[in-house]
């Protein structure tokens, strides 16, 4: 039954049955279960990742529903992480889905990600991404940044000491003071799909390349080649 579930995916030349079997041995940690994280967790579970932890401290709000395909009105007020665990476990019983209903901090992040094969960014803040980035570089754990704003989305797979890190591309950015980030409802699912593509490639041993930029309104899809910054304060060659 398991083989039948992934039959069409295992036919993909770049994966094959070996790639599919390899995915079943991998552990993914999704930090943030909102627009990006919920859609990414959904895809990773459906594609047959071995196990997935979903970390989020927030509850489902009405204003979340326009940009996720997983939550529904009956989930309002419930823990995002727990709802995702319950729903995604029903999608695929072969995957171990675990909810962690906690806030990620510099004190506890190590415990959450230490055994991850890849970290999926489902957060909505630059400081938390920088924390993930530092942990990733310190302990050599790949992660995939993704972000959305209005009609623009970006994704970058980060392979410590191989590709630029998040700090490499954000050194000039002033701290955001925006409370609510405007987002076209269909965009997080699109960007989460691209993010999962990058995660799958990393898990199967392929190196990510640069920053992917998708602008819905201007119909632009770009891949920007960026190299590591040797003077980066986080990943620079010391």
């Amino acid at each position: 039954m398991t083989k039948d579930r992934y039959r069409r995916q295992a036919l993909v030349r770049e994966l094959g049955q070996n790639g599919q079997d390899m995915l079943a041995t991998k552990h993914v940690v999704v930090i943030g279960g909102g627009g990006l994280g919920s859609n990414s967790a959904n895809l990773m579970v459906r594609m047959g990742i071995g196990s997935i932890d979903i970390i989020d401290y927030d509850s489902v709000e009405l204003s979340n529903l326009h940009r996720t395909s997983v939550f529904s009105e009956e989930d309002l007020g419930k823990s995002k992480a727990l709802v995702l665990q319950e729903k995604l476990q029903k999608v695929n019983m072969n995957v171990r889905a675990k909810a962690i209903n906690q806030r990620v901090t510099s004190e506890n992040i190590r415990a959450f990600v230490s055994d991850a094969d890849v970290i999926i960014d489902g957060t909505d803040s630059v400081p938390l991404r920088l924390l993930i980035n530092e942990e990733s570089i310190r302990h050599n754990i790949p992660w995939v940044y993704a972000g959305v704003y209005e009609t623009v989305g970006m994704v970058m797979g980060i392979l410590p000491k191989n590709t630029p890190c998040f700090q490499c591309i954000t050194q000039n950015i002033p701290k955001s003071t925006m409370k609510e980030i405007p987002v076209l409802g269909s965009l997080p699912a699109t960007i989460a799909s691209i993010q999962c593509n990058e995660a799958i490639k990393i898990l199967l041993g392929r190196h990510p390349k640069g920053l992917i930029i998708y602008d819905v309104w201007n119909q632009c899809f770009d891949s920007m080649n960026i190299q590591r910054n040797p003077s980066c304060i986080t990943c620079g060659r010391k």
């Binding site: 994280g37 909505d124 972000g147 623009v152 920007m224």
Partner: peptide, 22 residues
């Protein structure tokens, strides 16, 4: 950084700011 010196031989690229919503 914006203060980096450049010459005609350099290749410059410019992209919109990093986005941070989720």
């Amino acid at each position: 950084s914006y203060d980096t010196m450049i010459t005609e031989e350099d290749e410059v690229s410019i992209a919109p700011p990093v986005v941070s919503g989720g």
